[in-house]
Design a protein around this nucleic acid. Structure first.
Lengths: 207, 207
DNA sequence: GCTGAAGGTGAGCGGGCGCTTAGCGTGGCC
DNA sequence: GGCCACGCTAAGCGCCCGCTCACCTTCAGC
């Protein structure tokens, strides 16, 4: 896992690679606005206002409103893929690797709920080209999880009827955390991660 | 389960209660448009056009665009609740009732994907009052599933660590089907329903 | 101190939005 | 046939959208 998970309160970390400072502030403002109201219901005036700038400033750093979503989506998906890859490539049994992947992936969706919501649910608002690029990243995420499950089946550790379907279900379960998780709810991201890791191990019939 | 599930090809059934005919055509057009592009990206001109009417016709049958979403959402949630209730109240072991609930609920999300998408993912576009009304229906859905799981635990049939969390995960898994399911994909609604019923029985540790 | 690049602003454009209104065609009732 | 209620349309209002443009500041380099 990464050295520092996104903190609660306003996951503004992990955008360090975005420069200059004004461009990063606009990006973070866009993430928050998109997460709260959705891409289409968010106005460029709202984004600029949150970043403490005039509406015109947005267009110095980004060509269009859609470019903002594209950048957010790509960075987010790359982070998600990195999380799954790290868990997949560590040492240990398939069960340990799968539990690690699920718990860290869920922690990211719960803790960085704001970002994850945009990343997972605003995909359809991208144009065809950007969308295709992001879908390629998603297929890689799928491949990482499927790889772990296939390893478990091959080693005789898992009992799975349908590898493809189970992979989809596992990812679906994790992703949907971004929809329902709330910081005001009864669980901390860690707790959901642990619960979900247990549930997923049951789903793959770990022995 | 109901006598007739929604058919593929354009789930226009189940709107029989909406009259007159023009109002129903507008509602079905709105469901399709909202599912394809999202509530905020859909225009009233688009809805009216799909229904073969002029933009102004919409306002004879509905006060606002939001009222359309509200009506769709309420009818959809009532249908979802009815599906879960029917499964919950049938005879049989907790495992049989849970498998029934999950498979029929998933079949509805997969087969009536268009409607389910709007119902499950456009909730935030409703105003506070309408939203509160719909959330009450969602809590009832949650209660039906939790009831079955509690029955299974009480009877000693299930092995569950966290009833509330597991209930949430089961519902989350089913609901997210509306996001990823495609009629062009490799599965039929029935197949996903059967797969998911098996996965959920594993999650609750059925003995 | 002058200059040019970089990063910002205020004002506003063209257009499409949700929604309204005046008026038209039509079928039921006397 | 005369009348009216109803369902609908054509036209368009007022607003706010994404985005642009002319201009202003700041500051490094010389």
């Amino acid at each position: 896992m990464s050295t520092a998970e996104e903190t609660a309160g306003g996951d503004t970390s992990a955008w360090g690679e975005v420069t200059p400072d004004a461009a990063r502030r606009l990006l973070i403002a866009a993430v928050e606005a998109f997460a709260e109201r959705g891409y289409h219901a968010t106005t460029t005036r709202d984004i600029a206002g949150r970043a403490g700038m005039s509406p015109a400033a947005l267009y110095i750093h980004y060509k269009t409103k859609e470019e903002l979503l594209h950048r957010i989506s790509r960075i987010g998906h790359e982070k998600a893929l990195e999380i799954l890859r790290t868990a997949s490539r560590r040492e240990g049994t398939a069960a340990e690797r799968l539990a690690d992947a699920v718990s860290s992936f869920v922690r990211w969706h719960a803790g960085g709920r704001t970002t994850a919501r945009v990343v997972q649910y605003e995909l359809d608002s991208l144009g065809p080209d950007a969308r295709a690029e992001i879908l390629a990243l998603r297929r890689q995420c799928d491949a990482e999880v499927r790889g772990i499950i296939e390893d478990g089946v091959a080693a005789g550790d898992f009992d799975v009827l349908d590898v493809k379907g189970t992979t989809l279900a596992v990812l679906s379960l994790c992703i949907d955390v971004a929809r329902w998780f709330s910081v005001d709810g009864p669980w901390a991201p860690d707790e959901v991660g642990a619960l979900y890791a247990d549930l997923v191990l049951r789903m793959v019939g770990v022995k």
